[in-house]
Design a protein around this nucleic acid. Structure first.
Ligand code: MN
Ligand code: MN
Ligand code: ZN
Ligand code: ZN
Lengths: 151, 151
DNA sequence: TATCACATTAGATATAATCTAAATCCTTCA
DNA sequence: TGAAGGATTTAGATTATATCTAATGTGATA
């Protein structure tokens, strides 16, 4: 059962399972769309219980620190979050900015000469291009496509 | 000569070579440290001519649009910028957050089945771990290391 | 029940980025 | 030359995002 597994992973991470904290984890587990903190705040408050903005931010910070959630590196202003269920890479659309999950595969590590004294923990891959929704319009210039969307 | 090459690349990108715009490109070319907009603003104003904050942001936006500069995807709040001189990957330090350049090498593309109808433009690699400066302290817990730094 | 650490909250504050509208600078073309 | 008009710059206001503060609430346990 999903509820029980969230409860367990919170406790494994040394965090109490509060309604607000549970709601953030549940939302991220159900929505693999890499929502922003504002979207998560809105999402968890569509249903009860109410959670304040500060609590949403606090819990996201704690969940990241506990390793249950990761912040996805992406340009744009607002941080995006991702429940750490399975290893995967990301595809970021040049046109609409959507961040999509991509199947995991191992990446060749850099030559140890180029790594120097650095200690490598992980290699993350970010693919860029046009997503399925945006690819059909790729014939037209990017600017033209943007203009169409704005209109 | 570097000055001349900056001038030429600006014009090739369809941008006038103004003193403020030139200063941003020159700063980014000299400082491969992926500075934030605020750092660039401060940096270009250490020498003359003065450039306003709005102009620094405007020029960074225009330079990115022209493909001469890229915004580096990194967690943290402020966007970081990088003159597009040579292809390279990035190493981000878990402890101090520094973004360092890493030698370029080709990355195996995802299986076309997992790509679907998406159109792939590039594969970017982000390495994470401890940088040369932070690696020696890695024995102690991350939190402990942070406390030392703060104190 | 009393205690105490952990959590939540509203609202204030800080930080990063963008917008606005006016002024200035360039290029072009009589 | 010297208007005309587009591109650029500017200070300051505004918006967007994130964090802080200090008061309050909650629940496990002695
Ligand atoms: Mn993801
Ligand atoms: Mn770089
Ligand atoms: Zn898209
Ligand atoms: Zn470091």
């Amino acid at each position: 059962m999903v509820a029980e597994s969230i409860r367990r992973s919170l406790e494994a991470g040394g965090l109490r399972c509060t309604p607000q904290r549970y709601a953030v984890m549940a939302f991220l587990t159900e929505h693999a769309r890499h929502p922003t903190a504002a979207e998560i705040f809105e999402g968890v408050n569509l249903v009860d219980p109410r959670s304040s903005r500060a609590t949403t931010y606090n819990n996201l910070r704690d969940l990241v620190k506990a390793g249950l959630v990761r912040e996805v590196a992406v340009e744009g202003r607002a941080a995006r979050f991702d429940a750490k269920i399975m290893r995967h890479h990301h595809f970021i659309c040049d046109r609409c900015g959507n961040v999509e999950d991509m199947e995991w595969y191992d990446v060749p590590r850099p030559a140890s000469g180029s790594l120097g004294k650095r200690v490598l923990r992980e290699c993350e891959l970010i693919f860029r291009g046009f997503c399925t929704k945006c690819a059909p319009r790729r014939a037209s210039r990017l600017d033209a496509a943007r203009r169409v969307d704005a209109g």
